[in-house]
Design a binder for these strands. Structure first.
Lengths: 251, 251
DNA sequence: ACTGTAGTTCCAATAAATGGAACATATCTG
DNA sequence: CAGATATGTTCCATTTATTGGAACTACAGT
């Protein structure tokens, strides 16, 4: 096995619930002899992929990773523009907002904009959520052909339900989740794509569900949709659809 | 040369002004035969360190890097706590705030909190600034022994000036920069350390310099200092000093 | 269809990675 | 504080991945 693959396996250990790692942990988790694990971590330290935490024997990702994450965000015009839209909406309504990507069955927030209201949802960047069970996830899944979703979730007991919810998302142009991932929290999401790079991102706002009336909710959806619509128009995202808003008060 | 070192050299290409890269670029920048560059990028793609952008032949850091950056931030209690302090200050005053680390001669923002005021400094995470020429940088350099600074900046024409400014930072407990990096922008910064891990971070707020009176400035410093002081006390940072504020209006 | 540019695949030679065991160091426990 | 245990490092010959050059393929511009 190439040292590069081993190195990336080490990096993959980091994530939810693991922000540092030791030689022994690497040895057991990857099934490597501890000699190899020791050398591997040393090599990764030497080249900046890892760094030792203080004087301890624990390792965390190197500082370089922060630069790489920034480069990732900058490499995509779509992410940057979506971020501006969510940031503006987050400021106007005071609620926390995210930009998320899908990766298989999961979605991750890649940029967050914490709200300003006294009562607001605390941002939790990097947290992985099941794509079928949150509003951002469903807007992203709704961008796939039905057959693809069926293949992804083959054997899943609630596949039928999921497909009908995705159909609804396609029809309405947005998704809502109510207390799905966190008690008391509701979220709205809209997806937009860059056909040139096949990227799809989801813009969302999350808020305490007792705080927002249906009218205000539609106001928020409208604001996200306006920004997303401009992005879609300029990049040529044909699948984007302006949302149907029943409760919106005409301006 | 180990493939791991080559891989990390590729990753190091990303940064200011470079968010994607091709086989030829790698070949020329690292001085590798293009055969090697091609195989290297392929291997890095295969293990998730890079990804191809759309159908093009350009590469950017892989999604994994976002998770790694999040793990880095979580691995340090210091960073998290400093972030809370700056976030609260940013919300209260409406100005943009950062958490920064020093790496040799440079400082980088690793977390940002965009302000809410109409006129605010746009956050620019990942941007590398010369440590001697910004307020965050000087608070971090002020944490080093004078001899170490002298060694770092040996031969630098303005070493004497720098040392006297650092002495001032040590005496006052905070640093100010006025239109140093960006015209019209002023910033205040305070450093705090975790003696258990030898980490030092700088908390800062940046704002349009015409908008803030000396009294308000001291109010902001006081708020950052209060939070930083609590962190210093709980972690046992002996070098932390409450700032001397001349213009503060007694509460 | 032609030319230059960019990227990939093939090969034997070479340099790096591997696992086991001995060694060294930290951490726990009574 | 000694002895025990868990954790990390160094050394070695062996195995195997990596290397650079050259030939090959793909592609964009004219």
């Amino acid at each position: 096995m190439s040292i590069l693959h081993n190195a990336s396996d080490v990096l993959r250990c980091f994530g939810t619930g693991c922000s540092d790692i030791t030689v022994t942990e690497v040895s057991t988790r990857l099934g490597l002899p501890k000699a190899s694990a020791s050398r591997l971590l040393k090599a990764m330290r030497d080249c900046g992929m890892l760094e030792e935490i203080g004087g301890t024997r624990r390792h965390r990702p190197g500082r370089m990773m922060l630069d790489l994450a920034a480069a990732f965000r900058h490499s995509s015009g779509l992410i940057g523009r979506a971020g501006e839209v969510v940031a503006a909406a987050s400021r106007r309504f005071g609620h926390t907002g995210y930009i998320s990507l899908r990766d298989g069955f999961e979605v991750t927030a890649i940029a967050d904009f914490e709200g300003t209201n006294q009562l607001r949802v605390v941002s939790n960047i990097g947290r992985r959520l099941p794509a079928h069970a949150c509003s951002t996830g469903r807007t992203l899944l709704a961008r796939l052909p039905e057959a693809e979703v069926a293949r992804l979730y083959a054997g899943h007991p609630e596949l039928e339900l999921l497909l009908s919810r995705l159909a609804q998302v396609r029809a309405e142009g947005f998704a809502v989740s109510t207390q799905e991932t966190t008690l008391g929290v509701e979220g709205i999401a809209i997806a937009v794509a860059d056909p040139a790079t096949d990227e799809v991102v989801s813009l969302c706002l999350v808020y305490p569900h007792t705080l927002v009336t249906p009218e205000e909710r539609d106001e928020m959806i409208a604001m996200l949709a306006e920004g997303a619509g401009e992005i879609a128009a300029s990049l040529g995202d044909a699948a984007f659809m302006q949302p149907l808003l029943k409760n919106r008060i005409p301006q």
